[in-house]
Design a binder for these strands. Sequence first.
RNA 1: GGCGGUGUAGCUCAGUGGUAGAGCACGCGGCUCAUAACCGCGUUGUCCCCGGUUCGAAUCCGGGCACCGCUACCA
Length: 655
Amino acid sequence: MDTARRFYVTTPIYYVNDEPHIGHTYTTIVADALARYHRLIGDEVYFLTGTDEHGQKMQRAAEQRRISPQQLADQVVENYQRLWPALGISYDDFIRTTEARHRRGVYALFEKIRRETPDALYKGTYRGLYCTGCEAFFAPGQVTDGVCPEQGHPVEEVEEESWFFRLSAFGDRLLELYDTRPEFVLPVTRRNEVRGFVAEGLKDLSISRSRSQVSWGLPFPGDEQHVVYVWFDALTNYISALGYGQDGAAPLYARYWGEAAGQLHLIGKDILRFHAVYWPAFLMAAREPVPTSVFAHGWWLRDEAKMSKTRGNVVKPWPLLEDFGADALRWFLLREISLGLDGSYSDEALIERTNADLSNNIGNLFSRVLALVARHEAGTVPAAEPLVDEELGEAIEQARDRYRSGFDRHDPGSALRALTEWADAVNRYLVRKEPWRREGREQSCARVLRTACEQLAQLALRLHPAMPQGASRLWSSLGLGEDPAAEARPGQDLLDARRWPVAGSSVRAGERVFPRLDKKKLLGEAAATGSDEPTAGGAAETETEETGMIDIDTFQQIDLRTAKVVACEPHPDATKLLRLEVDLGTEKRQLVAGIATAYTPEQLVGRTIVVVANLKPAKLRGLLSEGMLLAASGPDGRPLLLSVDGDLPPGSKVS
RNA sequence: GGCGGUGUAGCUCAGUGGUAGAGCACGCGGCUCAUAACCGCGUUGUCCCCGGUUCGAAUCCGGGCACCGCUACCA
């Protein structure tokens, strides 16, 4: 009889062309910890990760190396397939979007949508953001502040034929989903965000790209001139990996999708919309069940600053793994931040956290108890009746509850905090009972040690989701075997046991399972190799914060120039905006400015104004603005334009 | 501009209608079974500000400020 609950947990599929960074690592470690926790409590678990291998970046990188995109994908997928085992990631399946089973899943989902909701897909005209520099289209989600994600060129709107998904028809159903199943988007703050976005109205979604633009992708079913839009392709991995669309029955899909199981998509907050809006809409159109929860976690910041390639402060997992080991890295990432909030990464924080929690607290606790057992009980856990006093008993019960509820809320940080409190309680218990004072009280000392060993077993078991390797070493030092999770069985909750049969097992003392990390040595090395962030930038930023002043260098980053207005008209879709064409001497630019309340187009043509020439372009009410004109605000809030005292050619530098 | 979040000890952050918490740091004491560990005591806080509800609010409500996120007819 199969009564176990089922738990399906996924990470996003990562783009193979990027090197893994701490963000990928974090998501995957959280997923792994949850998967391992659910196995411990007797759930049937299916844990999926994988890689996204289509797209133009892959195509281009392959061209440069004169190999096929598939060959390149086969090479670089190892970036992930080598990293995950080194971090102890226990995935059940690894899906690649270039696999045949994935392609079948994508086509099956299209097929089902066409059958169930025939008007959900239609051919229309795509007004896309095109980057001439890169000769590429970008989805609105990829473009920030009007520049392409590849090289920061401005993008412009262009039209081409495209297939659309009628997302606009799903707004009400999505809102109903968010309202009736509040756990669909977690944490709550993200749910509000998504709800607000959907409530403002949805536009239809282009789900194809011209083959001439992007050839490395799945051919659009029934239209070979197009390939499938990356997000339709990528999101489908969550069911294609379960055999959706395969010939005959798909037992995994039946087992882990829909009401038969609970599904958790773990993601970073950057891709929330795709998972919380597009994905359920696709599934609704196909009349397939939507997942139980999409959980968006926060970002890891580097010493308070956002991580980005341009800043050069991206934290990569391999060096951390080498310096600190998988246990410390996993513990730090899981323990340090809580439930969806951002966290700060620094080497120093990692060292302090793991020294305090793992070495001083848990590791040292094992060390002292096992040393006593070795010395006074001949290395064998005494069979004496345990002796849990009231204070210890209360602390344990609290820690048990907090551990469980932490993981049940997908909050490993809270769960792990309960374990250090548990160890604190045992440390205090030892001080109260003093099992090292033997004279005339051998029997009660034996009972105390038996009690302590049981608590150690409980701790080691519960450390397993966070640190499988460290937990195994602790487990075997208690003489209990190689792996605490070896006992896990579907339908059997290992965390239910109040007692653990440790009596009679032979312990191994004298081993430092979690040696202290030498802060001076490790940080010194980090500084010497230059892998730490330089301090100069940080100091300058601090100064700015304190005085509100900037230095001349900062000012000179702003490219102010004169420009002549050659044409001007009202914005077609806005009442307060004007569209201006200005001559910058070397080029003509389009600006959109909110000055329609103060100026008519006729008043502006021919005037020479001052503009910021190197501002990131932005789209204002549908029109691209490639710069910003300068105006002073009058007392009534109306803008008055800056002009130049005399005649100057357009494009003159202003400083 | 709109919506949402956050604001707690020197630092990093938990917590929550009923005498302010942890880790790190600092001081004193203890223990010496243990990984310069562990245990106890102590210092540092107007729990962002102002109002309100309440017997009682840091915790609930209203307003404000700061920072962050999403979004926009900001430029």
